[in-house]
Design a protein around this nucleic acid. Structure first.
Lengths: 136, 136
DNA sequence: TAGATTTGTAACCATTCTTGTTACAGGAGC
DNA sequence: GCTCCTGTAACAAGAATGGTTACAAATCTA
């Protein structure tokens, strides 16, 4: 339902976290994810803009800016879905109908709570948990 | 990000709940949502299959099977997203890589928790809350 | 009973989203 | 200078989304 950006982003970060002394190229990471290196670089770009990794043109690899235990899955979610709402609300309901006029605001309230609950749970899980589960 | 089915479904149910003595046609409801009547009938069909409303060919309108206070937003979510997972996980990660081999199972665990938290919050809100907010 | 109305559903379409791909400028290092 | 890498734009195929037409069958109404 939601696209696979979070999924691939966590995959990338797991590789970085589990090879802290290597410089993994986008091609190598793409080999593990089984996708195109550009897809990896696109996501790495989002993670860089969010301050989760550093990387620079010409230099192979990306480096985590924090310990895995300090990187929550919410951080990753926010990085790859910056500013997006979880639920879409249909636009242009009929303003001449009392329900139509107020539905967007009402749905906003409902959906905001649900989204926040989901984010709170993502915030409770960190990249360290991911790596631990991967190698357990 | 997630499509607007839940949004429109709640709109439909709000109209039914706030006009309990009328038989609202799909055309009337479509007028409030500002979409095509077939879109309404499609969603009403899902709500019917989930047991939230009854309706039948030839007879105008749909009727709630329960009081609004007994219809949770999770019921509606399950009706319109039956069997779908919230987060997609990229398929075919490389089985020759330890991370690739285990990432799907790990992500499944993480995502399941986040999805469940969201659903728990939806379960706490009912159609009665929606209607109350709409007419407050 | 005949005609009008309505639902349920299939089929189709345009638009947008998603993911993969090619291409290439420019940085880094040997 | 040559090679390798990242960042990024541009493009393309396929899927998803929402809207639309069409129509059979059920119900209602005059």
């Amino acid at each position: 339902m939601i696209n696979s950006r979070l999924s691939v982003a966590i995959h990338i970060l797991s590789l970085l976290a589990s090879h802290p002394h290597d410089r993994l190229t986008s091609e190598y990471i793409a080999g593990s994810v089984q996708t195109n290196p550009v897809v990896i670089r696109r996501l790495t770009g989002m993670l860089r803009k969010a301050g989760i990794v550093t990387s620079s043109p010409g230099t192979a690899g990306a480096v985590l800016t924090k310990a895995p235990v300090e990187i929550t899955l919410l951080d990753v979610y926010d990085a790859v879905f910056a500013g997006e709402e979880l639920f879409s609300i249909h636009d242009k309901p009929n303003p001449d109908c009392r329900v139509g006029r107020n539905i967007q605001d009402t749905l906003d309230t409902h959906f905001e709570r649900a989204e926040q609950a989901m984010k709170n749970e993502l915030a409770r899980q960190t990249l360290a948990d991911t790596v631990e589960h991967l190698f357990a």
